[in-house]
Design a protein around this nucleic acid. Sequence first.
DNA 1: CATTGCAATGAAAACGCTTTTATGTTAATT
DNA 2: AATTAACATAAAAGCGTTTTCATTGCAATG
Lengths: 335, 335
Amino acid sequence: MEKVTIKDVAREAGVSISTVSNALNDVDVLNPETKSHVLKVAKQLNYVPNLNGKLLRNGKTKMLGFFTTSVSGPYFYKLVESMSRECDRLGYGLNVFVTKDKQVIMSNILGRRVDGVIIYEELRVDEEEIAAMVKDKIKAVFLDRPLKNDTMGSVIFDSFEAGYEATKYLISLGHKKIAYISGVDEMYDSVQRREGYLAALRQYQLPTKEEYIIQGYFEEESTYNAIKSLVHLSSDKMPDAFLAGNDLSAIGCIQALKSHGYEVPLDISVMGFDDIDIAQYFSPPLTTVRNQIARQGILAINHLVRMIQKKEKGEMMKLAGELVVRGSSQVKIDR
Amino acid sequence: MEKVTIKDVAREAGVSISTVSNALNDVDVLNPETKSHVLKVAKQLNYVPNLNGKLLRNGKTKMLGFFTTSVSGPYFYKLVESMSRECDRLGYGLNVFVTKDKQVIMSNILGRRVDGVIIYEELRVDEEEIAAMVKDKIKAVFLDRPLKNDTMGSVIFDSFEAGYEATKYLISLGHKKIAYISGVDEMYDSVQRREGYLAALRQYQLPTKEEYIIQGYFEEESTYNAIKSLVHLSSDKMPDAFLAGNDLSAIGCIQALKSHGYEVPLDISVMGFDDIDIAQYFSPPLTTVRNQIARQGILAINHLVRMIQKKEKGEMMKLAGELVVRGSSQVKIDR
DNA sequence: CATTGCAATGAAAACGCTTTTATGTTAATT
DNA sequence: AATTAACATAAAAGCGTTTTCATTGCAATG
């Protein structure tokens, strides 16, 4: 079975190439007998259409691209898996490119290997470059920044709201000295969560002290160290609750507190964001704000496909987080 | 900037199409001046080669496919991320297909959208179908089953050895009644781990009781329930150690034991396989056998690319696991 | 009987590229 | 001066499709 092309099928069936093509693509112009005969021959020869030929001809690759730089962790697989499934459902394939190489990105995008792209987070493509992409009619959906115009949309989490709600929850437990463990300042989610936190504090007229915003960089270890340098505070200056930028950070925070004799949540409440797998297994189980990552992936793919197929314009969608209360937070006890 | 093709560049530069092609592809037959002029024009027009045209012409897509059915969990992202990076390094892209639809698989493979494929785990393609693929010169690397011939190779974990070593470790702690919590019987890893377990027991002349092999299906909940129905055993019949088929299973096991008043590891040692993220954060932290998933991905991609580019034959590679001792196991104490 | 209309099929162009082969020019050799 | 060699560039073929347009045969129409 060497590579068998449409030409072989045509020859074998004793018809022209166009007839074979029509038969295979179900174009209703053929004599039913001819059609079934052609199909029989095609099957018999194990014919499978060469997709490249097809693509070249009609300009559509039926492929979507997912471009990202370094990604890791649960976010990644939940996203990729949900997007991949959704692509499958819609008759597309998914190209995953984990790269920082702009050349790779550009040649794949502009080289028309994909019909549209999903772009995630840390990939800092300059705005001008995005504009360049767009001009060339490629549709894009961003997962990390709010954006919306004719050819580009976004599906993001409402991190401001999440930060706001989380803080409100901590306040409702009776906490008054709430610290925020910041993530990476260049990231949209990090900034938004902090803004939400500050907004809640202001609303309830709690002080927004400079020293209650701690750099944790979204990492366990950085946070651990940052908290370590806090624990010498006299107990009346010590925060009674920590809102960490993400779950990993919350874990680092708890580890540090534990190692200095604080009990969580007895002495101090701690919560995070994301609800990663570890959150529910950690001890104490983490109170957190869950993001529906799979849903984000599904929405993004659907939006992208609609932009491609139905020429819809880009939209911006915000997904609400969901407060998940577990064991790392509790009502403030004065003792 | 509408789509600009090689033809436009040729016209604009006042040369023929072939000259442009030669200039772009660095074929050293041109007058240096012509070449640099062409390149200048190309850049000026923002020309990017259409990859489909290229591919169709020379029959290589520079794309590898990763086919799998339902996958989830840490295994997935570690694999995809490492493979994706390695692809990038080697100048390939990675197509991820999460699908059970054989039609999708076949048309993408045989439709030559990829130069080679990685196939993972639960994807049960019948042997005849594999043969069909192979005949058609597609190269494949399997991650879930030992296999090796001219066009197909595999990179798998040495799960027999892992099971054997894990059991030996438990024996070395003084445990005598060691139970195995089995995974899914159709899976290679599951079976191999069990065989390794049995081999170790035999070697140390410990009994291999039927009732010490428990079905856990690689899941937390199933295992939890299975263990629940064990705990009524009189304490002299109760195992003093559990070797779970994977970490999730180990967690389910520990939860069940805890809920019946057993202390892990004081009363009973438990260990798992994989070393998933959760393992080190669980309480008690899990003793387990780590698989180097990223390494598996990297090896698989490299092997595949060598098969494609250097016409190497398929090989079978086995990766050794690594015993990670944490808090869920300890020396047997009689009390 | 000549024209028209229709149904079925085939021929050929086009998609964008690479590569083989052909062409034309100039320099080197006899 | 005539042939050859070397070089630079152009033309054309081909990759595997789809699709437009042309062709054929035949029944229906005037």
